[in-house]
Amino acid sequence: MKRDLAKTLSYGFFHILVGFSIAFALTGSFAIASGIALIEPLANTVLYFFHERVWKRLGSRREAQEESPANHHNRAPA
Rank of each mutant, 00 (worst) to 15 (best):
P77V: 06
D4L: 08
A23P: 00
K2S: 13
L47V: 10
S34R: 06
L26T: 10
T27A: 01
I32P: 06
A25H: 09
E67S: 14
Y48D: 00
R62T: 13
T27K: 05
S10Y: 11
P77L: 08
E67L: 15
I39Y: 00
G35C: 06
A23S: 08
Q65N: 14
L58N: 14
H73F: 13
Y48S: 01
S68R: 03
A76Y: 09
I22W: 04
E52L: 14
F20Q: 02
A6V: 10
S34Y: 07
H73T: 10
T27Q: 05
I32S: 08
M1E: 10
L58V: 13
L47T: 11
R61F: 15
F30T: 08
A76M: 06
V46D: 06
V18W: 02
N74Y: 13
F49Y: 09
A25M: 07
A64L: 08
I39W: 13
P77C: 01
F14P: 01
E40A: 15
H73A: 12
F24Y: 13
T45L: 06
L58R: 15
A78D: 12
K7F: 10
R61Y: 15
A76N: 05
H51F: 11
L42N: 03
F49N: 02
L17R: 03
R61S: 13
E66I: 14
L42G: 03
W55S: 07
H72Y: 14
F24A: 09
L5D: 00
